[in-house]
Computed example of a mutant assay.
Amino acid sequence: MAAVKQVIVIGAGIIGASMAWHLTRAGAQVTVIAADSAAGGVATPNSFAWINATWGNPEPYFRLRTRAMAEWSRLARDVPGLPLNWCGGLCWDLSAADMEAYTAQHSAWGYGIERVDRAGAARIEPNLTQLPDVALHVAEEGVAEPVAATKALLADAERRGARIISSTVTALVQTGGRISGVDTSHGLLATDEVLIAAGVGSAGIAATAGINLPLETPPGLIVHSRPYEKLLNGLVLAERLHMRQTAEGRI
C-alpha cells in the first residue's frame, strides 16, 4: 500500500485554502503554514471576488472560466457554509461597439447576456441614481465572500485531517536536488511536496531555492465603505468604478 503523501501548503488565503481542501479530500496529509491568521494576508481580504467569464479573452480561456464557475457551484455543495451568491452583474463599462461585440461573441459561446435599457437597469438596481441608457446583464455571475470562503475551506480541510500552523517560512530546504522541506520560525518541517500560495511573498520564498518566480505586483485601488443597509442587489460595473455590497453591508 502506497504511503500517504505529505504536502505543505505555504499560505492560508483563498488559493492556499482551496489547495489544502482539495488535497486533503484526495487523501494527502496536508500542513498549511499561515504567516497571518487565515485569510489575513493582502490579496484575499481585498479581492473584489467577482466570479465570471466576461469579455476580453479568447474562447479557450472563456471555457476555463465557465468551468471555474461550475466548480464554485460544486464547492458550495461540498463545503459547509461556503458563502456563494449568484447575484448577477450589470455592466456598462464598455463602449457601445465593445458591448455589441461582447454580446455577440459571448452569446454565441453560450454566456447568458441580456441587453437592458434604462428602465431595465432600474429594475435590477433600483437604488442607482445614475443609470445608463443601455447596459448588459448576466444573471449567472456571482461572488464568493473571500475571507468567509477561505475560512470555510480551511475549517473543512481541518475537519478532514489537515493541520494549520501559524509560522513564518524562512527558506525552502533541498535534498538531492529536490525540495524536501520548509524551514520556519518554529523549526524545520520535512515533506514530500511543497506548494507556494503566499501571494506577493511567493517570489521571495521561491528565491530561497534559486527559483525565479516572475511575479509582478502592480498597485490597485479598492475602497470599502462603512456597512449600509441593502443597497445593491448584485455587481455593478459602471464606467468609472466597479461596485458590490458585501454580506456585512460594505460597498
Rank of each mutant, 00 (worst) to 15 (best):
K5N: 13
V9G: 13
I10K: 12
I10N: 14
I15H: 10
S18N: 14
G27Y: 11
A28T: 06
D36L: 08
D36Q: 15
S37L: 11
A39G: 14
V42S: 13
G56L: 13
R63L: 15
R67G: 13
A68E: 03
E71I: 10
W72F: 10
P80N: 09
L84V: 15
G89N: 10
D93R: 11
M99K: 09
A101I: 04
A104E: 12
S107G: 07
Y111K: 11
E114Y: 00
R115C: 06
A119H: 07
R123M: 05
Q130G: 03
D133H: 10
V134E: 15
A135W: 00
V138P: 00
A139V: 04
A144I: 05
E145W: 00
P146D: 08
P146K: 09
A148K: 12
A152W: 00
A157E: 10
R159Y: 02
A162T: 07
V169H: 12
V173L: 12
R178V: 15
I179M: 09
S180F: 09
D183C: 00
T184E: 09
A190W: 00
D192W: 02
D192L: 03
V200C: 09
A203D: 05
G204W: 03
G204Y: 07
I205G: 03
G210C: 02
I211D: 09
L213T: 02
L215E: 05
E216L: 10
P219G: 10
H224N: 01
H224C: 04
S225Q: 07
R226K: 10
P227S: 07
P227R: 04
K230A: 14
L231C: 09
N233E: 01
G234Y: 03
L237C: 14
R240K: 12
Q245S: 04
T246C: 04
E248I: 06
G249N: 06
R250N: 02
